[in-house]
Amino acid sequence: MRMTGMGRRGRVVAAALGAVLVAGGCTVQGTGPDGKGHAPVRIDVTTGAPPKNTPSGDRRPSGTSARGREPSSAPAAGAKAARVLWERGDTGRDVRELQARLRQVEWLVDGPTGTYDDLTERAVSGFQGKRGLPRTGRTDSVTWRRLLGMSHEPGKWDLYLMGGQPAAAPDPRCTSGRVLCVSKSSRTLRWMIDGRTVSTMSVRFGSRYTPTREGVFQVYWKSRHHVSTLYDSAMPYAMFFSGGQAVHYSHDFAARGYAGASHGCVNVRDEAAIADLYAQVKTGDKVVVYR
């Protein structure tokens, strides 16, 4: 008897096709006229044709590129650019934290200084390039999130490794007269006149084996280009207050920060600041060193 409609052969093919479709998730791999494979095309299992209103061309899963890879991190055309948080020339505590975190991931050696300088800009650019981000040198919200995920919250001394921390409240003995008011807890020196702070600078002290003496003293000698006869080291802008201990500029402190220590002196890392201080301090002015 003659078969109608699709015919026996057609029905066998349709049944086989249906089995393939069920096993393969309702997709088949097509082959174009150039002999190359195309992306899967969805097929209606009842008719054997693509669904109505559905393109039969290249269909790929959402969130992948034409080659099946994850899309790049580059923003799409018209996408809103990441917000810039800090850039060269900015200053403050937030910049200091940025620098401390860059030190943790070994992209910055110097600092933190609290100033977004050329070294910080280069460190940020290197960090960005290593992670496939645009190498702008500016810290935007995307860069900052990546850095936060790779570092930990810096402690007080991580933030102020090179100095610049807030000065402690002055000792009561510093509130009258002309005083070099030196706080060991905040590692700062205040130059005070009649209770008013004229200037503040970061300082470091002697090690546990050569501690800086505490108490009330007086500047008894000033020596602009002094060189230590005991250690054969330069002590520019030296203002002696207790034996061989003095307030003076330190090249080592400027270079290494708190990674080093003095032999008992009060080291200052800012040469311009101590040069100005040296010009103002007189022999006989009081020195107070306290915790």
Rank of each mutant, 00 (worst) to 15 (best):
Q99D: 05
A49C: 04
R69V: 01
D34V: 02
Q128M: 02
S185V: 11
R138N: 04
V227M: 11
K184M: 15
G32M: 09
M201W: 04
K80G: 01
L147T: 06
G244T: 07
H263N: 09
T175Y: 05
T115R: 13
E106T: 12
R122W: 01
R208W: 13
R138D: 09
S141D: 13
G24K: 15
K52I: 00
G68E: 14
T64V: 15
M1Q: 10
C26M: 14
S207W: 07
A275D: 09
V95S: 07
A49L: 15
G30S: 09
A81D: 11
A279T: 03
V105T: 13
A49W: 05
R187Y: 08
Q165M: 13
N267D: 15
V219Q: 00
A272P: 00
P71N: 05
V182K: 02
G149N: 13
L21K: 08
R101N: 05
R83L: 08
R178G: 00
D94L: 09
S72I: 07
D232F: 10
G63S: 05
L98H: 03
T46C: 00
Y258N: 14
G126L: 10
D117G: 15
P170T: 04
Y116M: 06
C26P: 00
R256T: 03
W144Q: 09
D117H: 04
M3Q: 10
G257H: 05
R103N: 14
M235V: 04
T46F: 00
E271Q: 15
R204Y: 07
G7F: 07
E106M: 06
T46Q: 11
R101Y: 08
A254H: 08
G164S: 12
G244Q: 06
G149M: 10
S65P: 03
T143V: 06
